[in-house]
Design a protein around this nucleic acid. Sequence first.
DNA 1: TAGTTTGTTCGTATGGTTCCGAACCAAACA
DNA 2: TGTTTGGTTCGGAACCATACGAACAAACTA
Lengths: 155, 155
Amino acid sequence: MVKLDPPQREWVEAIGLFLERSGFPPSSARIYGLLLMSAEPELSFEDLVATLGFGKAAVSTGLRRLQETNRVSERTRPGERRRYFRARLGPDAGVDRFRAFNSALCDLLERGIALRGSRADAEITADLEASVRFLRFLDVELGGLRARWEANGDG
Amino acid sequence: MVKLDPPQREWVEAIGLFLERSGFPPSSARIYGLLLMSAEPELSFEDLVATLGFGKAAVSTGLRRLQETNRVSERTRPGERRRYFRARLGPDAGVDRFRAFNSALCDLLERGIALRGSRADAEITADLEASVRFLRFLDVELGGLRARWEANGDG
DNA sequence: TAGTTTGTTCGTATGGTTCCGAACCAAACA
DNA sequence: TGTTTGGTTCGGAACCATACGAACAAACTA
């Protein structure tokens, strides 16, 4: 059981809603929020159940999703069977997903352009081509950005 | 009714699924896909209903959502009551949403850092601070990117 | 006025997601 | 071997979003 002020509880809820909008199920989102807000860097399964008020099932599947997407790591302490969970914070995750998304979109748009053929309206085709060019530009630049940030040694 | 090859139909479905994953309801996603694939740059309400196989209700609400988010424009032709719908393709929409998302996340993380206070685990706090710094850097750079692209006159 | 066209809105139904409680399993220990 | 602890998986219930059909509205025609 984790001690949290009311504002801290509200924050967990707020970031929970936020993560939900980016595709996480509610249980995963609250778990991640709690791991970020807790004064302790690691929490046990039981801590999560007791503090969040979710059933064990929800916490179990919520954790699984978080681990599948590399958002949470898990370890055990010597002599204890219990596992402890910790939030993993990589600033790049969002960018990576964004780039992957754009890349997939780009491929799709190119296939679309090809399928439209030459008899189709030229303006829409031109718009699609402009989108593809921009997405390619964006991908290259985002790659450079990442390199630049890491070179600065601040991440 | 719009004539589409089977591969073209599949493409509409594919980009439909793709847009669904970025938050669009299924009907909106298919409508937008069809508007992009159709040889005609504009389609009527009836075209959408007949080609997609959705009911009128679904097309109506699907279109509303697309218009609310500026993804589709509508016009009438002189002497016709019917309305014609056209896809609007802005390459920036994705970037804007990404930046808005990051900005909101950044604010949230800063509030989180403040709420954690000084008694909380320092490593997690430091990770949060690094995330904030990176997000700020990213936002600035993305702004610059946009400007650079538009200056090149290729969008 | 009566009828046709062009959509919109409402009530209901359906599909998919997520939750809970319970049953279950695996590991440690008596 | 039996018991406790730590966690997973299953079945059913609840919820939310969305689709359909039908009723409705608005605009034009005859």
